[in-house]
């Protein structure tokens, strides 16, 4: 038992908590200070969690097999950058990105194709909604069997996982333009194609980006879990499952940290593109819808 460390961590925690309580009650004069305070509160909270974690692990001398301290994970992360980089390339750059592009592209294309057939829409939409509630991840062993151990099978899993959210959301988005606007396009004698490109697709962007954001998380999960079923000796899911078996828990945490950063960055990039494309939407403009 290392009491001083534990006590220091707990004191830090209480101090940070009190500071946060104080910070949220402040009303600063300048807008910049206010937004800085808004930003600081969650950051302080995050740092507090890390400090408390470090303090508890050191204070109670928790064996590193159970829970390594954040500093130890950071050490491991820095020391094994080449391995982590190779895993990242295999899982993220190959499986996730290719699968994501293919799955979203296919979902979008099918949604456009069935746009003119209400019958197909009525048939496919309930199925698509149904499939998104299913544990689709279970197809992973089958895909590994069909497409081999390498990244191709992971791409297949990612495609299947991302296809249906994209399909359902695009169809919903294409129906989002109101009757008034469509009638206006009719009075302009615009063709189906013109209406699609100039009115209905722009109106559908918010829905499509919702799907893109959901899929950015799903794709990474799909690729990692698919690697639990068999993979060449590289990849994030492979590393996690083997290092867990060898009880190198700090390596697992380092890999999870990489996955978390990759996932958040992926999501962030999609969200940034969304801001640029749907700049007119009330939720982006900051107005009230």
């Amino acid at each position: 038992m290392n009491l001083p460390v534990l006590a220091a961590a707990i004191i830090f925690w209480l101090a940070a908590w009190a500071f946060n309580e104080w910070l949220v009650r402040q009303n600063f004069q300048s807008a910049a200070a206010n937004s800085a305070a808004r930003f600081a509160v969650p950051v302080i909270f995050g740092i507090t969690i890390l400090v408390l974690w470090e303090g508890i692990v050191r204070g109670f001398q928790v064996p590193s097999v159970l829970l390594p301290a954040p500093s130890m994970i950071w050490q491991k992360l820095i020391n094994s950058l080449p391995t982590l980089g190779a895993d990242f390339r295999q899982t993220f750059l190959k499986a996730v990105l290719i699968g994501y592009a293919l799955g979203c592209g296919l979902g979008f294309a099918v949604a456009i194709l069935i746009d003119r057939s209400p019958f197909l829409q009525k048939g496919l939409l309930p199925l698509g909604n149904f499939v998104s509630a299913l544990p689709v991840i279970g197809v992973a062993p089958i895909m590994v069997m069909w497409f081999g151990f390498d990244w191709q099978s992971k791409v297949a899993v990612v495609v299947i996982m991302t296809f249906f959210p994209m399909l359902v959301n695009t169809v919903a988005g294409l129906a989002a333009a109101s009757h008034m606007e469509r009638d206006l396009m009719r009075t302009y004698a615009s063709s189906w194609w013109q209406t699609l490109v100039k009115l209905r697709l722009p109106a559908a962007w918010p829905f499509i980006f919702t799907a893109l954001k959901i899929n950015s998380t799903l794709a990474l999960i799909g690729a990692i879990v698919a690697e639990f079923f068999g993979t060449p000796i590289v990849g994030m899911g492979f590393r996690i499952s083997t290092e867990v078996g060898r009880m190198n828990v700090d390596m697992v945490w380092a890999e999870i940290a990489v996955a978390a950063v990759a996932g958040s960055a992926f999501y962030g990039v999609v969200a940034l593109i969304e801001r640029a494309v749907t700049f007119w939407h009330p939720s982006i403009r900051g107005g009230r819808a």
């Binding site: 998380t217 999960i221 990692i224 994030m236 996690i240 996955a259 962030g268």
Partner: peptide, 8 residues
């Protein structure tokens, strides 16, 4: 929500 929690 944006991190692959299942990896844990």
């Amino acid at each position: 929500q944006t991190i692959p929690i299942l990896a844990v």
